[in-house]
């Protein structure tokens, strides 16, 4: 089984917990490898032939994405 871990802009390693598509965005849910309480969300985008993870636009988008996730667990 392949396991997926990414390093974010803070230099820390995160487990990819889930990916959910909604309204044209793909939200990536990440949990710090060493502390599951440390959780964050990114959007996956494709730019100049690179896949990037970028922060969310605002607090409302964070709540929106978090609700999508909490419904799934």
């Amino acid at each position: 089984m392949e396991k997926e871990i990414v390093t974010l802009n803070d230099g820390l390693e995160y487990v990819i917990v889930d990916e959910i598509s909604s309204n044209g965005n793909v939200y990536v849910y990440l949990s710090n490898v060493d502390n599951p309480d440390k959780f964050c969300i990114r959007k996956k985008i494709y730019n100049n032939e690179l896949h990037l993870l970028v922060g969310l636009d605002n607090d409302e988008e964070f709540d929106f994405a978090l609700k999508l996730y909490s419904k799934n667990i």
Binding site: L8, N9, K44
Partner: peptide
């Protein structure tokens, strides 16, 4: 907050 989506497999 931007990072490459470079998954470590």
């Amino acid at each position: 907050k931007v990072s490459h989506y470079a998954k470590r497999i």
